[in-house]
Measured scan of single mutants.
Amino acid sequence: TRVETATETAWISLVTALHLVLGLSAVLGLLLLRWQFPAHYRRLRHALW
């Protein structure tokens, strides 16, 4: 049971790290898009909202 718990903890930390990385890359990508294509971003936002 001790090994299982350790594996579970490792998986949880791995998944958390993955989610953090994905979230950060998504935010960075959005910022980059907004910085590179302001007109396109505004049009996209206008279409979405």
Rank of each mutant, 00 (worst) to 15 (best):
S25K: 02
R45G: 01
Y41L: 14
P38K: 12
V27T: 10
S25G: 08
R45Q: 04
A47S: 12
S13Y: 09
A26H: 04
T7M: 12
W11S: 00
L28W: 04
L20R: 01
A17C: 10
L18E: 01
L44Y: 09
V15F: 06
R42P: 06
V15G: 01
W35P: 14
L22T: 08
G29R: 04
A47Y: 13
H19T: 15
L18Q: 03
I12V: 07
W49R: 02
T5K: 02
A39K: 13
L24I: 11
T1R: 07
L33G: 08
R2G: 09
L22N: 06
L33C: 15
H46A: 15
R43Y: 06
S25R: 07
L44W: 08
G23Y: 09
I12E: 08
H40K: 13
L20P: 05
S13G: 15
L44F: 11
L30F: 14
L20K: 02
S25I: 06
T16S: 10
I12M: 04
V27K: 03
G29P: 00
W11G: 02
E8S: 06
F37K: 03
P38I: 06
S25P: 03
L33W: 04
W11Q: 03
L31V: 11
A10I: 07
L18Y: 02
R45P: 03
H40D: 11
L14A: 05
H19V: 15
W11M: 07
V21N: 02
F37V: 05
L28P: 02
A26T: 12
Y41D: 05
A17P: 08
R34P: 05
P38Y: 13
A10C: 06
W35E: 07
V21I: 10
T5A: 04
L30R: 06
W35C: 07
T9S: 09
P38L: 11
T5P: 00
W11T: 04
Q36W: 09
L48G: 01
L14W: 04
H40T: 09
I12D: 08
G23K: 04
A47F: 15
W35R: 15
L32N: 05
R2D: 12
G29W: 10
A47K: 11
R42N: 13
L33M: 13
V21D: 01
A6W: 02
F37S: 06
T9Q: 11
E8I: 05
R34S: 06
L28V: 03
E8F: 04
L44V: 13
T16P: 01
E4P: 00
L33Y: 00
T9L: 11
A39I: 12
A39V: 11
L20H: 01
L14M: 11
A6E: 02
T9D: 15
S13F: 15
G23S: 06
T9F: 07
A17H: 00
T16M: 11
V21P: 00
Y41N: 00
T9W: 10
L22W: 00
T5S: 02
T7Q: 07
Q36T: 10
H46M: 08
L44I: 11
F37Q: 05
V15K: 10
V15E: 00
S13E: 00
R34D: 00
W49E: 01
L22P: 07
T1H: 10
L28F: 05
R45K: 14
L20Y: 01
T7E: 08
E4V: 13
I12G: 03
S25F: 01
V3L: 09
F37R: 04
E8D: 11
I12S: 02
L31G: 06
G29E: 03
G29S: 13
E8N: 02
Y41R: 02
L32G: 03
H46R: 12
T16F: 07
W35N: 15
E8T: 03
L48S: 04
A10D: 06
L22S: 08
V15T: 08
R42Y: 14
V27G: 08
G23M: 10
A26F: 13
P38D: 13
A6P: 01
Q36D: 00
L18S: 08
H46V: 08
R42L: 09
R34W: 10
H40S: 10
Y41E: 06
G23C: 14
T1F: 11
R34T: 07
L20E: 01
T7P: 15
T9N: 07
R34Q: 06
S25D: 01
L14F: 07
A17G: 07
T9V: 12
V3S: 04
S13L: 11
L32M: 10
E4W: 14
L31H: 06
H40G: 11
H46D: 10
Y41C: 15
L28G: 03
G23R: 00
T5N: 03
V21T: 14
L44G: 03
E4K: 12
L22M: 07
P38R: 14
A6L: 03
P38V: 10
R42C: 09
L18M: 09
L32H: 04
T1E: 09
H19W: 15
L33N: 00
H46K: 13
L18A: 06
R2L: 14
L20N: 05
L22I: 15
I12F: 06
G23W: 00
A26Q: 00
L14K: 10
L32W: 12
E4H: 08
R43T: 12
H19C: 15
L14I: 06
L30C: 14
V21C: 14
L14D: 08
R45T: 08
R43F: 08
A39T: 13
V3E: 00
A6C: 00
G23I: 14
R42A: 13
L31I: 11
E8A: 05
E8W: 05
R45F: 04
A10R: 05
H19E: 08
R2S: 14
S25W: 01
I12Y: 10
A47W: 14
L44Q: 04
L48Q: 03
R45H: 00
W35I: 14
R2K: 14
F37A: 07
S25C: 15
L20M: 10
T16Q: 08
V3M: 01
V21Y: 04
R34M: 05
H40A: 14
E8R: 01
H46N: 12
L28R: 01
R2M: 14
V27C: 10
R43E: 10
T7L: 09
R43A: 10
A6S: 14
T9M: 12
L24S: 02
L44K: 00
R42D: 13
W49S: 08
L24W: 12
W11A: 04
S25N: 10
T16K: 03
R2H: 11
Q36A: 13
H40N: 09
Y41S: 12
L32D: 00
T1I: 13
H40I: 07
T5R: 03
E8K: 00
P38A: 14
H19G: 15
T5H: 03
L22Q: 06
A39M: 12
A47V: 09
T1W: 09
V27W: 06
L31R: 04
W35K: 15
T9P: 14
V21R: 03
